[in-house]
Nucleic acid binder design. Structure first.
Lengths: 223, 223
DNA sequence: CTGGATCCATGATGATACTG
DNA sequence: CAGTATCATCATGGATCCAG
C-alpha cells in the first residue's frame, strides 16, 4: 500500500488565509513573532520567553521564518550572538498577534496559575490590551516599565497602544515609571497589591495609571 | 526509557496569545472558523471548502472547537443534516481571520494556479479585502453575488466590509447583482475579462463596482 | 447520500544529552 | 551563546468501510 502523504506544511489552496497560515500557522511560529514584535532578540532570549520549546524546534522555526521572509538573523563577524528581528513583512503581522491576544484577553483572562510560565513581556502585553478593552480612555501617555531589570515602553498615541522592549530614549521621556518584578506587577494587576512596586511620576499621570491598572482585575472572565 | 511527553496541544503559558492559539492554533481550525464566519454550514459544505481535509480530521476539529465554545452543532431531531455555526465567542474571531487574510492579500496576492482549489467564498473574501486595501473608497454599498448558484452578500457600512453567504433579504436590496461562476469571477478580477459574467444594477453603482474590481489585478505582488 | 469511524504510514514535535 | 544529535511519542493524512 503506497501512502503518498501530502505535505502537512501546506494547504495548497488559493485562499489567502490558508496561505498566510502556511507561513505562520505552525506550532510556536506566531509566538516567535509575538516576542520579536517588541524588538530584536537572541536565541536564548527567545528560549526564555517560549517556555517549553526545545532548541531544536526553535532553530527550525527560525529558519522557516527566515525562508518565509518574516525574520532575519543579524550575524556579525567576530560576535557570538545572533540577533533575530522581524522583516517589514514580519512586522506587518502585528495586527494578527493583536487580534489573537485581544480575543484571548476577552475570553480567557484569568489569574496566573502557580508555576505557570509568565514572562514580564507577556503580562505587559496582556495588561496593555486589557486597558484598551476595559476603558474608553485613549489619551496619549507614555509608561516606562522596568521589570526584572529589563526596560519596556508602553505608549498610547491617542488611537492605539504599542509595546516595545527598550530603555526610554531620553530622561523624563516617560510620564510614569514603574519598577517591579513580574510577580509584583501580577499582584498589582490581579490583587491591587502595591507590595514590591515603585511608581514615580507627576501626580496626575500616576493617578491615571493607578486608575487604569486598577480596572484590570474586573476584566477577569470565566476562563 | 519513559519519555513523559508534554501535551502537544497546549503551551501551558499565562500569555493570552498562547492560550488563544491553544484553542484555534491547530491545523485547519482557523480555516473552519473562516468558513463558518459567512454563516452556518453542514459537514459536507465544510468538506467542499476545506479542500484536502479528511473527514476524520474535520470531525475531530469540529469536536475540539465545540469543546472550546467556538462552534455549536445544531442537531434537530428528525433532520438528517447537522448545521455547524459559530458561538458568539467564535464569531469574535473575525478580526483574527481578517488580520490573517489581510496579511495574506498584502504579501501573497497572486493569480490562482491551475488546479489549485479555489472556492467562490474565498475568492470573494480575498477580493473584498483587496478592494479595502487598494482604494480609499469606503462609501456604503451592497453587492449581491450569485456564484456557482450560491448567493453571497458583500457590503460596506462606510467603515468596514463584511461578507455573508445568503440571498438578499429583500428584492432590490442590493445596489449591484453579479452572476458568474467562480472561474469567471477570477478571470474578471485577474484578467479584466467579462466573459461569463452578468452585472446588473443602476449605472452609477455598476460603474463603481467595475472601477473597484478593476484595480485588483494591480495589487498583485511578488508571491 | 450524509456524517462519520477505523487502521496504518509518515512526519512533526518533544525529551535529553552533547558540542563548537 | 547558539545551536546539533538521537530517540520516543503523538498528530495528521491516505485509504477504506459503515450506519442511518
Amino acid at each position: 500500500m503506497t501512502c503518498v502523504t501530502r505535505n502537512v506544511r501546506t494547504y495548497d489552496h488559493f485562499c489567502l488565509t490558508a496561505r498566510a497560515l502556511e507561513r505562520v500557522g505552525d506550532r510556536w511560529s506566531l509566538l516567535v513573532v509575538r516576542d520579536l514584535l517588541t524588538g530584536a532578540k537572541r536565541f536564548t532570549d527567545l528560549m526564555d520567553r517560549l517556555g517549553g520549546i526545545t532548541p531544536k524546534t526553535l532553530s527550525q522555526r527560525l529558519r522557516e521564518l527566515e525562508d518565509a521572509d518574516i525574520v532575519t538573523a543579524d550575524r556579525e563577524p567576530g560576535r557570538r550572538e545572533v540577533w533575530y528581528r522581524l522583516t517589514p513583512t514580519g512586522a506587518d503581522l502585528e495586527p494578527v498577534i493583536d487580534a489573537l491576544n485581544w480575543w484571548g484577553v476577552r475570553h480567557s483572562w484569568r489569574l496566573p496559575r502557580p508555576g505557570e510560565p509568565l514572562h514580564a513581556e507577556h503580562l505587559l502585553r496582556a495588561a496593555v490590551q486589557a486597558v484598551d478593552l476595559a476603558t474608553d480612555d485613549r489619551e496619549p501617555v507614555r509608561w516606562h516599565f522596568r521589570l526584572d531589570g529589563t526596560d519596556y515602553l508602553a505608549e498610547s498615541d491617542g488611537h492605539r497602544w504599542s509595546l516595545t522592549a527598550q530603555a526610554p530614549p531620553a530622561p523624563a521621556w516617560a510620564d510614569v515609571t514603574i519598577t517591579a518584578t513580574t510577580d509584583a506587577l501580577a499582584a498589582r494587576i490581579f490583587a491591587q497589591s502595591d507590595l514590591g512596586i515603585d511608581i514615580t511620576g507627576e501626580p496626575e499621570p500616576v493617578r491615571r495609571f493607578r486608575q487604569l491598572i486598577g480596572t484590570l482585575a474586573t476584566v477577569v472572565g470565566p476562563g
